[in-house]
């Protein structure tokens, strides 16, 4: 196996008493789109900030493109591209002026920079708006230019921090297409999002983060497969231990977990399992307060793992 382009071992980041990232480890292979999926405050942006040398880690070994972020930050900076969550552009300048300025900051030679600016504007579909002030761009156009700036230096490894926040569907699709095209050209990408459908669509592997920890890491399909054929959530007032044992023994039920007043069922076949579960509730005269069948996807995985919604 090749050396990973990113190797994170035991990353911890504290802000005073707040633990933003709590001992996470993962690797990203060359050519991969790796997703960090989690709700706001899960620690995704802090992880990216450490990887791009912006934030000092409290503990951990972090190597990016063969260089330690704490020992050789300049070498790391030259190997990476970052598309921050903020629209980090000068609104008074036009697209070309923004790209030219940031290109100079990466020492891109003049002739190559001008060529690169043309290519990137075409890639993100802004060639016709190249001379318009950025302040007059739509949110989606700004996001696309934000992406173009991150690609100026032709990085080996690109980090995208929630690049589709506040973007219209058309621009979102354009950004997805750009990311997939770039990846096909060999670019390794770290993609953070709290939209599970984006992670499912784009990422080869996904690390699900919650409260500073990675709670699951695998391909989207493998993560979804852990749910079996579907998840059923049933609200209850109370349930006896004997009832739980009988529910776990049902043929179509893989596992049952209890969280507060909800029972979460992993099933082999959600529809058949539902009939079995309802039958047992009726038989024992156990009241239900709610019933929900979850489609097997990353959102369901997250809910199954944490009991919380991704967009909480």
């Amino acid at each position: 196996m090749n050396e990973p382009i990113v190797a994170v071992e035991g990353l911890v980041k504290h802000y005073g008493d707040v633990v933003a990232v709590d001992d996470i480890s993962f690797e990203i292979q060359e050519g991969e789109i790796f997703g960090l999926l989690g709700p706001n405050g899960a620690g995704k942006t802090t992880t990216i900030n450490v990887l791009c040398t912006y934030t000092e880690p409290t503990a951990g070994e972090i190597v990016v493109a063969g260089h330690s972020v704490t020992v050789e930050p300049e070498a790391v900076k030259r190997a990476i591209g970052v598309v921050p969550q903020d629209i980090a552009l000068y609104p008074d300048l036009n697209a070309v002026e923004n790209l030219r300025f940031f290109g100079r900051m990466y020492d891109v030679p003049k002739a190559r920079l001008e060529r690169r600016i043309g290519e990137l504007l075409k890639l993100v579909g802004l060639a016709e708006h190249a001379r318009r002030r950025v302040e007059h761009y739509s949110g989606g156009m700004k996001r696309r230019l934000n992406l173009a700036v991150g690609l100026l230096s032709e990085p080996r490894f690109l980090m995208l921090d929630e690049p589709t926040v506040g973007v219209d569907p058309q621009s979102r699709n354009a950004i997805f297409e750009n990311i997939q095209a770039l990846n096909q050209q060999g670019l390794t990408i770290l993609y953070t999002t709290h939209y599970m459908e984006e992670a499912e669509l784009l990422c080869h592997r996904v690390a699900i983060m919650d409260e500073g920890q990675i709670i699951a890491l695998d391909t989207p399909q493998n993560l979804i497969n852990t749910l079996g054929a579907g998840i059923i959530h049933i609200g209850i007032k109370d349930v006896a231990e004997e009832m739980l044992t009988r529910l776990r023994a049902l043929p179509q039920v893989k596992a049952v977990a209890r969280r507060d007043n909800t029972l979460a069922f992993e099933t082999l076949d959600a529809q058949r399992a539902l009939l079995e579960i309802i039958g047992l509730f009726n038989e024992t005269d156990t009241p239900m307060t709610s019933l929900e069948i979850l489609e097997p996807n990353l959102e369901s995985v997250f809910i199954q793992l944490t009991g919380k919604q991704l967009r909480d």
Binding site: E74, K77, V82, Q85, I87, A88
Partner: peptide, 13 residues
């Protein structure tokens, strides 16, 4: 606040 300063800080400058 806008984020351009951060963008410059993570560039090799």
């Amino acid at each position: 606040e806008r984020g351009t300063f951060k963008r410059l800080l993570i560039a090799p400058i």
